[in-house]
């Protein structure tokens, strides 16, 4: 039994689920790699791709919470439920009036049962698995390469953006806690840190000159004071989080 037959069996199951629960508006199954395994006839592939793309950010960071077991989104007119069964994600979209207990009973029993059944009948993996890696013969041992000193691993600090303004404020200089600057300088054998690389969560980066914070009310608060020009360049504003690391010349 190949993947096509699996998909056919699953698609029929999804259509039947929709027949049993008319309040389910969409239902589909996809893998962690973004492969669509099956969808009911009401759900367009393009829609599923958008959903997978939307979940990408969550799934990518979910290992920090032990991997995703389920996602529930509640909207004013309906809800989306995604449950994970052995690296396979099963999504249902329901209207507001849907009886969630009934929907869950049907979906959480039926889908795992069908998946188990398919696996038992023909134990072919649902996912397109890559071929096993070739085992290479052992090479003659070379002397171990000494790792680079820690200097290549730059420390990164997460800081909250705070405005920096005034007549005499240079537009290319940010201000960071003196304590952080001292820590960086200690790490780099007392080399003076004059520049810093700032990165936003959207991936925008810039380099700026750096000086210690003068205003005592911002000391020890994990703040980076930033002129408006730099904020505009990074497309961020006060209150947002950025990563900062020293630039070692």
């Amino acid at each position: 039994m190949d993947n096509e037959v699996y998909a056919f069996a699953l698609k029929n199951t999804l259509n039947e689920i929709r027949n049993v629960c008319p309040d389910i508006t969409h239902t589909f199954i996809f893998t962690e790699d973004g492969e669509i395994l099956a969808a009911d006839e009401n759900t367009h592939e393009k829609t599923i791709i958008q959903v997978i793309d939307t979940f990408d950010g969550i799934l990518e960071k979910a290992e920090k919470i032990g991997g995703v077991e389920g996602i529930t989104l509640e909207g004013s007119k309906g809800r989306v439920n995604v449950s994970c069964i052995k690296d396979i994600y099963f999504a249902t979209v329901t209207s507001r009036k849907a009886d969630i207990n009934y929907v869950n009973t049907v979906t959480q029993v039926l889908i795992p049962t069908v998946l188990k059944l398919l696996e038992k009948i023909y134990p072919t993996p649902l996912k397109n698995t890559p071929p096993p890696p070739k085992i290479e013969p052992e090479k003659t041992e070379k002397p171990p390469i000494e790792p680079e000193p820690l200097l290549s691993e730059l420390p990164v600090n997460q800081l909250i953006v705070e405005n920096l303004g005034g007549l005499l404020v240079p537009s290319d200089t940010v201000r960071i806690d003196n304590e952080i600057l001292s820590q960086w300088e200690k790490l780099y054998e007392d080399r003076k840190i004059e520049e810093v690389e700032i990165e936003t969560f959207n991936g925008k980066k810039t380099r700026c000159k750096v000086k210690p914070i003068k205003d005592s009310k911002y000391e020890g608060k994990g703040v980076i004071q930033m002129p408006e020009k730099v904020q505009l360049a990074l497309e961020i504003k006060k209150g947002e989080l950025v990563r900062a690391k020293p630039v070692i010349q």
Binding site: Q50, I58, A62, I65, I71, L73, E74, G75, V93
Partner: peptide
Amino acid sequence: EASEKLCELFDLGEAKNINVEGKDI
């Protein structure tokens, strides 16, 4: 971000909340 996009995609109205359940957290 996902909650807003999905509500728009499936016409679910205003996003009320999203619950991501991990194995630990």
